[in-house]
Simulated assay, not measured.
Amino acid sequence: MHDFTRYVALGDSFTEGVGDPDPRHPNGLRGWADRVAEQLAARSAHFGYANLAIRGRLLGPIVDEQVDAAVALEPDLVTVYAGGNDLMRPKLDIDAMVAQYDTGIAKLAATGARVLMFTAYDAGWSPVFGKLRGRLAIYNELVREVADRHGAALVDFWRFDEYDDARMWDWDRLHMSVAGHENMALRVLEVLGTPHDIAPPDLGPAPALAKSEQRRADLLWTKDFLVPWIGRRVRGTSSGDGIAAKRPTLEPLR
């Protein structure tokens, strides 16, 4: 077990904390990475935390913009999730994408920091995102190879079946809910082998929706999320346009 003192989190909305709103935190988001940092800070009198993740970022910009910035901060722990936004694009060269990811992970591992990577979630049950299941599985196998090559630890999201519960997801069905972020913090701390006081979310039995209620929910989701999301793809814009990293430098938690 190791007490970390310089933690840097990289990635997109998953790591920025979208789905876990909290006005007390930068960008109005808490998220699993902030929760992990809180637990690590409780174990060290000299703890610093930076979160460079920005929603909507593709893997290329994450590697190009965040990796060197992270290396400059001299971390002893780095978490990085990248590629989720790429995997939802119509056309994708997965091999080229993961080759670029490999280059970034090599830089991070060369610092001597503990590096944690993530597999993508198995959304096979989802009527929409389930269509990407084969692509996600290929990505995950390549990510496992990158992790093995560079001695990175792996948070195996693909195998976390507790996320089959819709309540672990926010209203947009794409980002984790508060409960989802709490649970992910617990999962990351388990991989690190760090003692913590986070309990698994106790959601109780899932409510059964009548078919009419489900249809109404699906129509609302299509109108409020899917159509605007497709519109951004067509216009070439991103939900992260104009958004800055929530914690660009290593600072103590306040």
Rank of each mutant, 00 (worst) to 15 (best):
residue 1 M to R: 12
residue 2 H to P: 07
residue 3 D to M: 05
residue 4 F to W: 12
residue 6 R to M: 11
residue 13 S to Q: 05
residue 13 S to N: 13
residue 18 V to W: 11
residue 20 D to K: 06
residue 21 P to N: 05
residue 26 P to A: 13
residue 29 L to K: 01
residue 37 A to E: 03
residue 42 A to D: 11
residue 42 A to P: 12
residue 44 S to D: 09
residue 45 A to F: 08
residue 45 A to W: 09
residue 46 H to K: 13
residue 49 Y to G: 05
residue 51 N to T: 06
residue 56 G to A: 06
residue 62 I to V: 15
residue 63 V to R: 14
residue 68 D to K: 05
residue 68 D to V: 08
residue 68 D to G: 09
residue 73 L to N: 06
residue 77 L to Y: 04
residue 77 L to V: 03
residue 79 T to K: 04
residue 81 Y to E: 11
residue 81 Y to P: 05
residue 83 G to H: 04
residue 86 D to W: 04
residue 96 A to R: 14
residue 98 V to K: 01
residue 101 Y to N: 08
residue 104 G to C: 03
residue 109 A to F: 07
residue 112 G to E: 12
residue 113 A to P: 07
residue 115 V to S: 00
residue 116 L to W: 09
residue 117 M to G: 08
residue 119 T to C: 01
residue 121 Y to Q: 04
residue 125 W to K: 11
residue 125 W to T: 13
residue 125 W to C: 02
residue 126 S to H: 15
residue 132 L to H: 10
residue 133 R to Q: 11
residue 136 L to I: 11
residue 141 E to C: 02
residue 141 E to Q: 14
residue 142 L to R: 15
residue 142 L to F: 11
residue 146 V to C: 13
residue 157 F to A: 07
residue 157 F to T: 06
residue 158 W to C: 11
residue 162 E to D: 04
residue 165 D to V: 14
residue 166 A to G: 12
residue 166 A to W: 09
residue 170 D to G: 10
residue 171 W to S: 14
residue 175 H to M: 03
residue 178 V to D: 03
residue 181 H to T: 01
residue 182 E to H: 07
residue 182 E to S: 04
residue 187 R to I: 04
residue 189 L to G: 06
residue 189 L to I: 05
residue 195 P to K: 10
residue 196 H to P: 01
residue 197 D to G: 15
residue 197 D to L: 12
residue 198 I to F: 03
residue 200 P to A: 15
residue 202 D to Q: 15
residue 204 G to C: 04
residue 204 G to I: 12
residue 205 P to F: 09
residue 207 P to I: 05
residue 213 E to G: 02
residue 214 Q to P: 07
residue 217 A to T: 05
residue 219 L to V: 14
residue 220 L to H: 14
residue 221 W to A: 15
residue 223 K to P: 00
residue 229 W to P: 02
residue 231 G to L: 09
residue 231 G to M: 02
residue 233 R to D: 14
residue 238 S to G: 01
residue 239 S to W: 07
residue 243 I to S: 05
residue 244 A to I: 09
residue 245 A to S: 06
residue 245 A to T: 10
residue 246 K to V: 09
residue 248 P to I: 02
residue 254 R to K: 13
